[in-house]
Structure formats: C-alpha cells, structure tokens
Design a protein around this nucleic acid. Structure first.
Lengths: 126, 126, 126, 126
DNA sequence: GTGGTCTAGACCACA
DNA sequence: GTGGTCTAGACCACT
C-alpha cells in the first residue's frame, strides 16, 4: 500500500525548519500507528512537489528517518516504513520517555513537587 | 549582594547556542528564587572569563534577559536581578505552562490517554 | 515581492547606534504601510553592503524586529514582513501614543497649558 | 539664596544615565522658573552625597549646564544659576521647539494629518 | 571599573 | 544562496 500526502496530512509552518517538521510528523504518524508497517511513502520528488518545498528538504528528512531505521529505502522501488515492529515500539517509548523527562526536569527546576505537578496536569482540558 | 559564578553554577554544552544556555539557566535560577531580587550578577567580562566564552556571548544573554525585564543593566554599575517580584512570578507561570503544554501535546500525538500519562509520571523516580 | 534598498531609503547618522536606526526606520516604514505585508526584505548581507555596515549590525536590527514579530526570519529563505496586520496596527498605535505622551510631558514640565501647546502646533508649517 | 536638594527634588531612575537625569531636571526647573535667577546650587559634593551618587556624576551634569551657560561656576564661591534671563528664555523656547518638532515628525512619519494629531492631543487627560 | 556598539572574519544550519 | 552563532579586538558611554 502506498501512502499519499493526504494520509500524512503534513502541516508546515514556514518559521521552523521544514525538514524537521516533515521528519517529526512522519515519526509521530508511525509511532501513533497511523501508518501500516511496510507501507510505501511518496517519493522525495512527489512529496516535495505536493508540499511545495525543495526536494533537498524532503531528502534530508528521509535520510534522518533512514538513519533511525524508521524507514527503508530500496533502490529502484521506493521508500517504505520499516516492518520491524520492535523498532516502532522502541521509538514510541523513547518519545514518551523524553517527554516525561523534559517535563519532570522543568518541574524540578522550578521546585514544583510531584503531586503539585500532577494536579496541574489534571486541571488542564486535555 | 553580589552573586558569584558558583552560585549560578552554569553548565555549558557546546552542542547548543551558548548565549541561550546562559540565558535559560539564569532565568531558571531566578524563577526558582535561588537568587535574591536586586542581587548583582557577575560582570560581563568576569562571567565570560569564568565560562571561557567571549564577552559578547555573555552580553547577548544579559541583553535578552534585560529585554524581558528579568534583569536590569546599569552602565557603569553592573547588572542586577529585577526587584519586581511580579515579573518573576509571571516568568515562573509561563515556564510551567509551557512545560505542561509541551507534555500534553506529545502525549496526544502519541495517542496516550490522560490517566495513562499521569501513571507514567507517577511511576518515575522524581 | 522583494523590497529593495531604495524603497526603504535608509538614512544613517553615525552619532546614533546604527542597528537602532535601521530598526526604527524599517518599523516606521511598516507602520506607515509603505511596505506590503509578507514582502521580502533585502538579505542581511545585501543590505549590509548597500549601507556599508557590517552584516552583524543589520542582523541585530532584523533580530529585534523579529522578536517584536514585525518581521519573520526564515533561515535559508530570507526575511519577510509579518502578514499579521493586527501586529502592525498595534505598533502604529504604540508609536502614536508614545509621541503624545512625550509631547504632553514636556509641555507640562515647561508649564505650558494645553491650549497654548495646541496653538504652537497649529502655527508650525506641517 | 541657596537652593537645597528638596527644592530641586530630583528623582533618579537607576536604569537611565544619572548625569543626564540631573542635568535635565535642573534645566527643566530653570526653564519652568522654579528657581530664581542667581540662586546658588548645592556644591557638587553636597548634592552627590544627598543623591548617593558619585561626585563625578554630578560634576558632569554641572559641566554641561555650564557649557550651555545655564549655570555659572565661580571659583571659591560655588555654582549659581545664570542671571541672564534671555538665556533662560532661549532654553525654554528651544525645549518647546524640540518637543514640537519631535511630535510633528513622528506624526508625519506615521502619516497622521495635522487635525487628526491635534484631536488625539485633545482627547487625552492632560 | 561597568555595559554598549561595531567590525572582520570564521564556521554552522537550512533550502 | 539564506539566516545564526561565536570570537577577537577596537572604541565609546557612564560611574
């Protein structure tokens, strides 16, 4: 199955690095399991054209995803989401762990206690 | 009272902008109320020497803090923590709000429910 | 649309900080609506060369305008006037309010009454 | 007659150049005719002590006032407001003229018409 | 001594 | 090509 740009539904904000936004959003989609393992991503040129960005920008995002083994590029065939589900699980865990660490670090820095911090979270809309 | 570098205890990491790290760490120290209002910070040249960075780098950090009214620079006299405690409170609130938003946004992206997220926080050491 | 230096027509005076003059004059041009929202400003290096100042000096002016959200800088792409027209309106109002406060304060200091001050304004050429 | 610090009632703000504030406030007091011509000002040391500033700072303010012939220093006797009333009148006119020029320049820069500007002034409290 | 502005020039990040 | 960070070092403004 090939994923089209609509499925990815990438939202770009010109004030931030484009390649990072592409990278993060694809990574999230994978981690959230919105995209089936082994699916084919749009080609670099295709996605670049749809997003109206430079192909180099998409290329760079794909390269980093490749490096993290989230996607696999098969010469002559295209780019695919990895089929190794443990990779996905690993990424998902990392993202959650990072978010938690960042949050608790900030709270510690501000001297806000665990219970107080959790209360703040419970108050919010969510 | 004059604050020395040991009190600030700045930790610099070459992978991120130096002036930002200086800025953020001083801001945290103020938000955490580790530094008395109205205290005098080390001079630009002094801190630069201790951190082994260029004075312009320290200056830039100080100028941004000055613009946010966290510190007051007085030419010929030195640099001082603001005496306006409501400014400090405001910064503190902003920092906490940002941390919360960033955390909940990530959890939503990953499709982790509120209660599950809070459980994750409760598990950790803290 | 890209703005050239002739449209900006910047006049620099060595007795005042150069970066401030650049900053103020661009801000005025935007407030006066001489520049279309979303236009691209000259690049840092380009403007520096035309004004015969160091690129860092132009950069500093751009950075302050960026912080005030009057312009948006996009790394690799250039510098653009904000498209948020309410920002512009806000700046315009602030500038007028400051001018009025400064004028009335001086008149009060000199003990010149409201009507007398207005008469002085009416006499001038304008 | 000797003027004491209470008559001058100088208000200093540490975030701005001290010598300028002293200079401006004395100049205003003279222009507003709060101080009789020929009066004796406090000595540099005396005023410095009362304001808790460095004598050099007061000295510099006095020097500039001297240069503008607003005050006269008589060796061994002290510092006096000039007795030349045309000087005072001249200063007063200059200050008013400057305030007007600055105001009208800003309004022109913003493209606000004469009548609109005057309306703005009439609206304010004053 | 303090902070503030400016230059020249290196090197990095992004499109 | 764009903007962003950093350095070394000059010179100015203020106390």
């Amino acid at each position: 199955m090939t994923i089209n740009e609509e499925t990815l539904n990438l939202q770009l904000d010109l004030s931030k690095p484009l390649y990072e936004q592409i990278l993060y959003q694809i990574r999230y989609a994978v981690a959230r399991k919105d995209i089936a393992l082994g699916s084919r991503l749009p080609s670099v040129r295709e996605l670049a054209q749809q997003l109206r960005v430079n192909p180099n920008t998409v290329m760079r995002a794909y390269q980093e995803l490749n490096r993290d083994e989230i996607i696999e590029t098969r010469r002559g065939q295209g780019t695919f989401i990895t089929t190794k589900s443990h990779k996905i699980q690993h990424i998902r865990n990392n993202m959650a762990a990072e978010a938690i660490k960042s949050f608790t670090d900030t709270m510690k820095e501000l001297g806000i206690e665990r219970q107080a911090a959790i209360s703040l979270l419970e108050e919010g809309e969510w």
